[in-house]
Structure formats: structure tokens, C-alpha cells
Design a protein around this nucleic acid. Structure first.
Lengths: 145, 145
DNA sequence: TTATCTGCAAAGCCTTTGCACTTAG
DNA sequence: CTAAGTGCAAAGGCTTTGCAGATAA
């Protein structure tokens, strides 16, 4: 990690009535070092390895701040648990999930994004964000079938 | 309602070890007559008007059967509550949600669908389904701002 | 000092499950 | 008769909230 993300967090906090805090920055460090798609519970487990006293509520509250700061994004594959992925230095992308084994990949299509923009405009909306999740069966699962 | 949907339900049940039931068919009738995007709780409330004894669990269980039968589809706008929309006689579509007032519209783009298919194939997946939700600000809210 | 942050535990919400009873086939 | 369906209430899983103490500015 370069340290820049902590800087982004701090500048986001500037003037937003948000103070620095050790626990929050530690959560951010662990979050950024981790795999890209973590549930709050999984992140909490990782954080507790280094700082056992940090509670789940703090992790949830920190993730909310990270999302506001643009450092994280919430992703919901529809299994009842929100996941969070860090955004720093990553292009926007969507997801392709295997219905059989649960594996998933990040996908991207500039073409689709453009059409989404146009579609929103056509309905009089200004597009702010979107989620797109494709569900299918991966090659491995089809082969194993 | 034409009655055809009940027929679809019944034929889906054929051989699936699923029996007919009055409560379930009543839930289906109310569901089909209702607005298109209902939470389970909202549907339960409507159902109880006609049959006060029907419980929430039965509604949840019925919705699962409807989804399996292709009569309904689960949609999640990310607010923590699943919604269900009936599919009978409707083209596939996605959603465009206003972040400010919560209004939403159904949208469709054959172009995007084709590209989704191609994208999945490129990654070795066979596409089964997808969700796409665009978030923005509607014209009315932008004007009112 | 004062508003924010934290940890803990409790509460909230939505959804599912266990159980005894009812009902379809 | 047998397996599926139902209603109720309880349990589950994830997330948020209340609160008193700790902490940043």
C-alpha cells in the first residue's frame, strides 16, 4: 500500500465533521490489502487478527465512510450478504457470477456503459451509478456436468 | 386476470411433487392483480385483506414457487428488501431508479442484452440471467432542486 | 471542552424454519 | 394413507442503534 488511500480518506474527512481514528485507518489498511470482494463479517475477522478489540459495528461504520469517500463500493450478489470492494486505482467493472460454484469474475464493457448512459437520458434521468450482474454457468462447471 | 396464470402454476406443479392449494392460488391472484413491484410484506398485507388467516411464511413460500414456475422474478434495489414482480406476458426489462425520490421505471435495451450475452461467452460462461439497475436522478427531482 | 468515535450488547428487519395440524391426491 | 401445505411462533442472519466511556481537534 502506498499510503495515498489514507490520504484520500483524510481529505474526504476534511470538513465533513469526520475525525481521524486509529481503528478506522487500520480497517482501511486491512481492507485494501485483502481480496477485493469481502463481506463485512469477513473483513471484521481479518481486522480482529491484528486488533482483537475492534467490534463489528465499527467495521460497518467504517465501510460506510469508505463508500462515501469513494474508496469502496457495495456489491450485492443477491445472497443476502452485502460485499464491499475497494475502488482505489481500479477501473469500473461489473460482475459475472457462476450459479453453480459461486465463482465470479469482473467484467467491463465500455459499449454497455455508453448505452446505459443513453438509456437513462432517454428517460429524463441523469445517470449516477449502476449495478449489473450477469449470472451463468462457468466453463468448468459445464464441463463437469 | 384470465386464469391462464393459474394454469401455468398448475402445470408447473405437475410432477414436481407440488400440490394445489387454495391459499397459494389466492396469493397468486392477488399478486397478479397488484402493482408490479411488491415486497413480500406488502403482498402479505394485501392477501390478508381477503384471507386474514394466511400467514407471512405462506406468502414467502408461495413466492418461491412462483419464481420457480417463471411467473415471478425477484428484484433487489439494494434497500434490504426483496421485491417481486410478475412476469406473465411481460417482456424482460431492467430498472432505472431515482436516488432522490425512489421512483423507478422499467427499461429495456436489446442492444445491451446482446452485449451481455457476448461478454459472458467471452469469459466462457453460458448466460442464464442478469440484473441491471441504473441509479440516477429523475427529471422532476433535478428540476425541484 | 465538545463533538465524534468506539465497543459492547441489544434491538431491528427481513426471511426462514420447526412443529403440529390440515389437506390434496 | 402419505406427503405436501399451512399458520403460528420462534429462530436466524445480517445490519443498525443506544449508550457510556474514550478520543481527536
Amino acid at each position: 500500500m502506498t499510503g495515498d488511500e489514507i490520504g484520500i480518506l483524510r481529505s474526504h474527512q476534511q470538513g465533513a465533521g469526520i475525525r481521524r481514528s486509529g481503528p478506522r485507518e487500520e480497517i482501511l489498511r486491512v481492507f485494501l490489502k485483502s481480496e477485493r470482494h469481502l463481506s463485512a463479517a469477513a473483513l471484521h475477522a481479518l481486522v480482529k487478527k491484528r486488533r482483537p478489540h475492534i467490534g463489528a459495528a465499527t467495521v460497518y461504520r467504517a465501510l460506510k465512510v469508505f463508500c462515501d469517500a469513494g474508496l469502496a463500493r457495495e456489491v450485492d450478489f443477491g445472497d443476502g450478504t452485502k460485499r464491499f470492494e475497494h475502488q482505489f486505482g481500479h477501473e469500473h467493472h461489473d460482475h459475472l457470477v457462476c450459479l453453480r460454484c459461486g465463482a465470479f469474475e469482473e467484467i467491463a464493457s465500455e459499449d454497455i456503459e455508453k448505452r446505459q448512459e443513453a438509456l437513462a437520458k432517454k428517460h429524463g434521468y441523469s445517470l449516477v451509478a449502476h449495478t449489473m450482474i450477469l449470472y451463468g454457468v462457468c466453463g468448468q462447471c459445464r464441463g463437469a456436468k
